[in-house]
Design a protein around this nucleic acid. Sequence first.
DNA 1: CTAGGGTTAG
Length: 664
Amino acid sequence: MAKNNLNDWTCWVQIAGRILNQTQLKQLHAQLIQNSLHHRNHWVALLINSCARLRAPLSYTRIIFHSTPSPNLFALNSMVEYYFSLHVCKEKEVELLTSLFSQLLASNNKPGSLYPILIKSSGKAGILFHVHLLKLGHHQDPHTRNAIMNAYSKFGSFEMARKLFDEIPKRMVADWNSMISGYWNCGMEAEACSLFNLMPENERNVVTWTAMVTGYAKIKDLFTARSYFDRMPHRTVVSWNAMLSGYAQNGLAKEALQLFHHMIKAGNGTEPNQITWVTVISSCSSLGDPSLADSLVKILYKKKVQLNSFLKTALLDMHAKCGNLETAQKFFDKLSVHRSCTTWNAMISAYTRFGNLALARELFDRMPVRNIVSWNTIIAGFAQNGHPEMAIRLFEEMIATTDLKPDEITMVSVISACGHLGDLEMGNWIVNFLVDNQIKLSISGYNSLIFMYSKCGRMEDAERIFQEMKIRDIVSFNVLVSGFAAHGNGIEAVELISRMRKEGIEPDRITYIGVLTACSHARLLKEGRRVFESIKCPTVDHYACMIDLLGRVGELDEAKRLVDHMPMEPHAGIYGSLLNASVIHKRIELGEFAANKLFQLEPTNSGNYVLLSNIYASAERWDDVDRVRESMRKLGVKKTTRWTWVEHDGKVHKVILGDRSYER
DNA sequence: CTAGGGTTAG
């Protein structure tokens, strides 16, 4: 470390970039103390920046901060950024900052250009500087005033922002833009729009237009967002990014990719930047298409795009969602100290998606800082992978040991976990918890309640929730239908079809599976047949349900005819239904036919052998029973019950509607 | 100098 370089800013930046871990940070700090440079503001600022990046502990960072006798803007600024990087800016810290800020203002005569920067980087605390600026008369500086106004509209109230806005004698474009996005922050479409229209047309710049695009995307009105985008006189990368992320964040991945192609084709000097790539990659993730992912990676490579940590995290997620866990893992390892909370969350989610709960849990326990998404990820991971009890335990741990407030996403997982467990007591406790903590539910929240109640055998409560909903979606109907199916309420299930059509929702594959299963359990042959014939493109699963229904009511010959005339290749479920019906109705020949098909399709499923031997047993054909048992032994088929059939009321029932069918 | 765009959970 040459001393003559210490006043050179580029040298500092270089050194800052070289600090990769806390050990190096401490070494540098020690070197500075040795050279008596540790009280210099620029070095303090630099060290604190590194502390924020490396997530150094608060106590250590404070020691560094207090080593400067009179902190200047740079030092103060870094400290503010550090506090915000912790996401735990407590009142006390804000007070400290405010007093330091006022000290600084008092000692500095010029309203320097650094004020807007400091206010902006202080986030919510920026508002607190307003009063100090007023006292010192610096609030008239247009840029400082704009920064304050912007802080109000982002973190405080749009009313205060509007008050400042109205008092400005000569408004800059930035003032209009701050105010418009302030309104959009609160979802106030009408006010934002009226300001936009009030603004002189030649004053509107690309930022104004982009703010409108973002605003409409935020309220999920992508049609209007697009119309503003199309009407823009000029577009920058930011405008394209705004429109792209509007699509991406509202689940319109295809539209996002289409627009991206448009962007590339149009050229116009709007080259995609890292933010564009992050958005595009995230759209590709939600499509889960490996070949698309592959081609994107190739383009990134060809264009020599620099990968920052946002991009690497997005790529990690994309690979995981497109089925490549190893590559995802590689990105996670490569990120090392640059891992953000999001990076950890994405990796945990990758493990849960592949069903590896042990590794997911290990990462969760190891990560330095957890946010609400971390908890939601791990809770959902256990809830969806057959460990609802662990999901609930984690939820309890979360509310007992953290200050994080559970949101709807947390609750959806917990409610569905109660459903899987059939734990009505816990379910009711959760409902009270929702009320006590004022957690508002959207459609999917209510859907999870319907699921929970019907799994707990409380169909009247499930129906009550369903009725209480103002808007329902296809899942609402499907969950209720499958509840009816499980409880054998055939008529109710059939009636739901016409009801959903009345609400403008067309039944889908899952709906029909549910209704047919309900008919099967209720032995409603006529209704089931009518429903089956009304399906436009029946899938193999629908045939399975219909054959199950026919078999159950004893129409085995018709069932066999249906199997023979299916337009597609029958799968194991089809022959399973047939075999099952043959057992019940003691149809040995048909049973042998179905069983032989099943032995080819799933040679390791012991259940099929058992069923066939049961047929022989019921006809007292003990030689055949022994023969089946023997071939089972020879083939090494173990009696591991990967059962797709369950016993209920003394009869064998087929479980077609796994709860997972909604999640896939 | 100021205003507009980013990754993760159901």
